[in-house]
Design a protein around this nucleic acid. Structure first.
Lengths: 197, 197
DNA sequence: TTGACATGTTATCAATCAATCAATAATGTT
DNA sequence: AACATTATTGATTGATTGATAACATGTCAA
């Protein structure tokens, strides 16, 4: 009748990763403490360190994971849709990631501003180029199309990072901007970001 | 024959602000210490605190300053060019800010990922909307045009933050991406970011 | 059942950092 | 020249945080 009280280390690592994504997304890689992540994951702070070796290693793990998720989502979209509709579908796939795991894109956004960081910088550079390569090599997008897709994605990161959708009801400008940037998809964002906790 | 060894507090504040922009741009608002900024500015750490009251107040000052610079640059571009060529000229004005003060756009990028921060969040949200308003109200851009201009700007922030132009010579993909995103302006970026110090 | 191993915790430390305070040294004024 | 004012620093501190190590507890095979 007793439920298991312990997970094996791989399962626990997955849980801590999910917590780390939430916390890193909200506070950034530096301000987020291993204690914050531990509390979110329901384990002790030293165990977070134990599971990943160091905070830096955890950060690297998350950045790699986030980029891989983006690449996988893009490859799936490329395989599922006709070439002429690809840009729109890839954009939708990107936003789908936000729904699946809210913090993912914000972690990416944080990584993409950390080019000078010795741990994150190389990973982020390599990852960004890898995403671009995926669009051009696998998706057969022109460099211009790929650039537009990436630009739209980076704007999405900012809109989500600023929590602008929360002002949707109160601010005409925000409504116009979201309507212009996400034609037909505004509802997605209006409900996406949870009201303040 | 003696040179002045002291500046008045306003002059010193300007110098410290410039240092803060450099340091914040490189390390982010959290990882950058007041000691780092003090060293860059050539003053003591306590004096940085004294001049701005607190690190938080300094951060708020910088975010407000950066946004004001963007708005001013956009207004100048709007006043100087015909409506049909505005989007391109506004994009150029944005990149011009990078040349004038390298860290400005990176500080903005950091602020735009800090929506959950109680100090930065409100300032960044308000600032972003203010920039959008400037494009729509003063520049008479359509919401769609404004969204594209902002998207291109956010992509520029990421490209600069990742220091991708440094890989221009070594990486074909980077060359293609920069050529696609900045038609005719690639040279600007190739030389922009200083080689590693 | 017992022991061995993997999962976890508590206690603790060293380092870092923003902030305070008292003291000092330029500068300008009378 | 003396004085008031402003700029600036050195010394210090309390709080935070990543990491370590020693210890505890759950799980499972033999």
């Amino acid at each position: 009748m007793e439920q298991r009280t312990r997970l094996n280390s791989d399962e626990r690592r997955v849980a801590v990763r999910a917590a780390a994504i939430r916390v890193f997304a909200e506070k950034g890689f530096v301000a987020a403490t291993t204690g914050d992540i531990a509390r979110d994951a329901g384990v002790s702070q030293p165990y977070v360190i134990h599971l990943f070796g160091s905070k830096d290693a955890l950060v690297a793990d998350i950045v790699g994971y986030a980029i891989q998720r983006v690449v996988d989502a893009f490859v799936a979209a490329i395989d599922a849709h006709a070439p002429d509709e690809l840009p729109a579908h890839i954009g939708a796939a990107y936003l789908g990631l936000f729904q699946e795991e809210e913090g993912l894109l914000l972690c990416l956004a944080h990584a993409f501003t950390a080019g000078a960081d010795p741990t994150i910088g190389p990973l982020a550079r390599e990852g960004f180029v890898r995403v671009y390569r995926t669009l051009v090599d696998q998706g057969r997008l022109s460099p211009e199309q790929a650039g537009q897709v990436l630009a739209a994605g980076m704007l999405s990161n900012v809109i989500l990072g600023l929590q602008l959708p929360r002002e949707y009801d109160d601010n005409q400008m925000v409504r116009d901007l979201l309507a212009a940037v996400y034609p037909g998809n505004v509802e997605l964002f209006k409900n996406a970001t949870a009201p303040r906790e």
